[in-house]
């Protein structure tokens, strides 16, 4: 097997917050104790609800922010600031909202050539343009689109432009932050197919961030489920979806509506809302909302461990799932 493109070891990122007029300053552990590897040609999905640390993780992987704890390396090179310049071409990001992430005053051609202008000073204008046009073909845009402005495109086509721009420097790793969430269903499938095609042709690794479990189920190889900044379950996609071990994963799956009328599933109802990240409970972060909580859950933080794939829970769902399958 080829070397992983991305390795995270006990990765964490804290923020100092507050210290306003009355509030006392606090420490938010936006991401903590996060480990994973991602190999070329594979897709690792990070799922969880808003505030679970998905975007912070994306910002660390795309070299926008430095980890405050643990280690992160891309293509075997640690992502310390001294290395950011040489890593910049290895990792690129595509955001949810193509409108917000494209410069609306630039023509498509200029948008595509810009990363080359900055990072490939050796390239001539002609070479840049050739590369830009080649990339447009690759993502399914037409040659005449080169001189148009982003507002002349539909949402799906703008997302193609964003993908094309991300690929200009030939990165090995793409971070896809909710790449199809803003798109209509009929366009969503076009973009997902494009991502699959590009991955096959270019051997790209995808860190796929999404709250849409039906999309993740279709596109991912492996899944990390995050809750309040920490992974609570991780494993191969089929295992996690078919035999979820953490109660939170089960609740998340049961809350996801399925396009099957009368499927008649029991929905697991969660109490309360996500606690403030300033007040993460000492034991299991999910304990205040979990239906199986015991004293040990409130006191001792469960480790991410166990088989067939790790889950951070004192009372994983193994028997339940077995019973339901029987």
């Amino acid at each position: 097997m080829s070397e992983p493109v991305l390795i995270a070891e006990d990765l964490g990122r804290d923020y100092e917050v507050g210290g306003g007029l009355f509030g006392k300053p606090g420490l938010v552990r936006a991401v903590t104790d996060t480990s994973f590897t991602l190999s070329p040609g594979k897709t690792l999905a990070v799922v969880g609800e808003s505030g679970c640390g998905k975007s912070t993780l994306a910002r660390m992987v795309t070299l926008i922010e430095e980890p405050t704890r643990g280690k992160l390396s891309i293509a075997g090179i640690p992502t310390v600031p001294e290395n950011w310049d040489r890593l910049r071409t290895e990792v690129q990001i595509v955001f949810q909202d193509p409108y917000g992430s494209l410069n609306l005053r630039q023509r498509v051609g200029a948008i595509l050539e810009e990363p080359l202008k900055i990072n490939r000073r050796d390239m001539s204008a002609k070479e840049r343009q050739e590369k830009g046009r080649e990339m447009m073909r690759l993502v399914g845009l037409r040659p005449e689109h080169y001189d148009r402005y982003p507002h002349m495109f539909s949402g799906g086509q703008r997302q193609r432009i964003a993908v094309a721009r991300a690929l200009m420097l030939e990165p090995r790793l793409l971070v896809l932050d909710e790449p199809v969430s803003a798109l209509d269903l009929s366009i969503q499938s076009q973009i997902l197919n494009l991502l699959l095609d590009l991955q096959e042709r270019l051997g790209l690794a995808y860190l796929f961030i999404s709250h849409d479990l039906s999309v993740v189920r279709h596109i991912a190889d492996d899944v990390v489920v995050m809750y309040l900044g920490r992974p609570v379950e991780t494993g191969p996609k089929d295992e996690v979806f078919e035999r979820p071990r953490h109660p939170y994963t089960r609740a998340l799956l049961s809350a996801t509506p399925r396009a099957e009328p009368g499927a008649g599933r029991r929905r697991i109802e969660l109490k309360g809302e996500l606690p403030s990240p300033l007040n993460v409970p000492p034991g299991c972060p999910f304990a205040p909302r979990c239906w199986k909580t015991q004293d040990v859950c409130r006191e001792v933080r469960p480790a991410l461990e166990g088989t067939p794939h790790p889950a951070a829970c004192h009372f994983p769902e193994d028997e339940v799932v077995e019973a339901e399958r029987a």
């Binding site: 269903l185 009929s186 969503q188 499938s189 197919n193 699959l196 189920r217 279709h218 399925r258 396009a259």
Partner: peptide, 29 residues
Amino acid sequence: LFATPHHPYTAALLAALPERATERRLATI
């Protein structure tokens, strides 16, 4: 509606759902 859509658009929308996918490539409109 989900079992026997009569309009081609409805049928195409349902076919494009990732959870109804039968292959790696999704149906598109």
